[in-house]
Design a protein around this nucleic acid. Sequence first.
DNA 1: AGATTTATTTTGACGACTCAAAATAAGTTG
DNA 2: CAACTTATTTTGAGTCGTCAAAATAAATCT
Lengths: 229, 229
Amino acid sequence: MIGPMATIAVENYLKHVLLLSTREPELVPMGALAAALAVTPGTATTMVKALAEASLLRHLPHHGVSLTPSGRRLALNVLRKHRLVETFLVNILKMDWSTVHREAERLEHAISDEVLDRLDELLGHPQSDPHGDPIPSREGELRIQIYATLSSCVVGTSQRIVQITDQSENFLRFADQHGLPPGAVVRVTKRDHAAGVLTLRKPTGRSITLSLNAGAQISVELAMSQVAS
Amino acid sequence: MIGPMATIAVENYLKHVLLLSTREPELVPMGALAAALAVTPGTATTMVKALAEASLLRHLPHHGVSLTPSGRRLALNVLRKHRLVETFLVNILKMDWSTVHREAERLEHAISDEVLDRLDELLGHPQSDPHGDPIPSREGELRIQIYATLSSCVVGTSQRIVQITDQSENFLRFADQHGLPPGAVVRVTKRDHAAGVLTLRKPTGRSITLSLNAGAQISVELAMSQVAS
DNA sequence: AGATTTATTTTGACGACTCAAAATAAGTTG
DNA sequence: CAACTTATTTTGAGTCGTCAAAATAAATCT
Ligand SMILES: [Mn+2]
Ligand SMILES: [Mn+2]
Ligand SMILES: [Mn+2]
Ligand SMILES: [Mn+2]
């Protein structure tokens, strides 16, 4: 039985189910959930059964889980807290891009809805967090968008970075050091599928070479800012 | 056995022992601790024995507990987080004076030392929180001061409010509505021990009558701001 | 001092979350 | 489709923090 007040563990389970369910009626496999939570599969099963009992999610034994409406509502609220906290830590406290995730992982469970609203106001109602991930609205809307990546976009065109998919500290530090945060504009000048590398050029003229795998972790959209020269 | 990472419960126990130990070598009685933590006496005893085992506090059975140096260090760090968070909530997020305690009670356990430092910087290294309580320094100094109160200060003199001792939401709302936050200047114009009431006058001319008991909850110091007229 | 009241500790139990290892179901392959 | 591999569930156990109620120690009062 799970009481009226969601514990930290409950919030984490629901948030990760949300994060792992890309398309709507998709079932999140137990293994993926357990791995995301850094917990053994047996633990995840036990917990999932309790959450299903509380109708926060549906459990199709041996196939996976999906969120119920109330579970989704709760998960979106936690995700909103996570991403607004990350934005606060970077924009207001000037913390490092690559380390705020760890902090937000704890703070997301300690922030009340009241504080959440005020934080949102202070930050000017941002639409996305420092990694380019969309911030769920107060009403629970999450606009997921599919973007091209540096490995799939058209060569030669100006692209604006919108999202960093691999959010490991290592990769984020790499992106930071090479001036590739969301918002930065780059052009893919070369792409060699045989060698598995691509080359970028920044407006400053600086060139960067990275693997296609790395490039696939950086989402972009066509940059239409510059006036015809 | 208590591991290397302090849990929320451990932090709360240590913080409340600190808060309850006014003079240095004083023993905090079990009952007071249990009451402060809203826990049964038996629970407090169990927990205290574990904390003593981890040498975070000393336990003299049937007499009380006191902090060890490492327990005190930990408690001061949590208290610093609590009070800086309260200051942030009031000064930056413009939250209500009387409600921030509840919020800080959770946030104090979710904030890292890194975030703590940045918050301190953002706030301009404040010395006291919105209730006038001193904020422990980064190095663990806590300058407690004994103040006069509205019930004990000299009648007729200008006094500056420095601290609200009773921090129940009710009392804080009362103080707020009558314009009596830390920093406000008032003069006690009358004090009737038989009737148990005293009368204040604010610089604006406004008069307020309150009980001696209520007055004892408001600490003051002599206000020496005004130039001779 | 002996009896009574009050504070503290002990005991037995429970809920929430977790793991390791054994059991079982599902998926895959010859 | 039977054998094998992989994913999931079950089982048994442990930790942490808690409570209710019984046992005991300390303080107080004739
Ligand atoms: Mn979390
Ligand atoms: Mn993020
Ligand atoms: Mn607390
Ligand atoms: Mn305070």
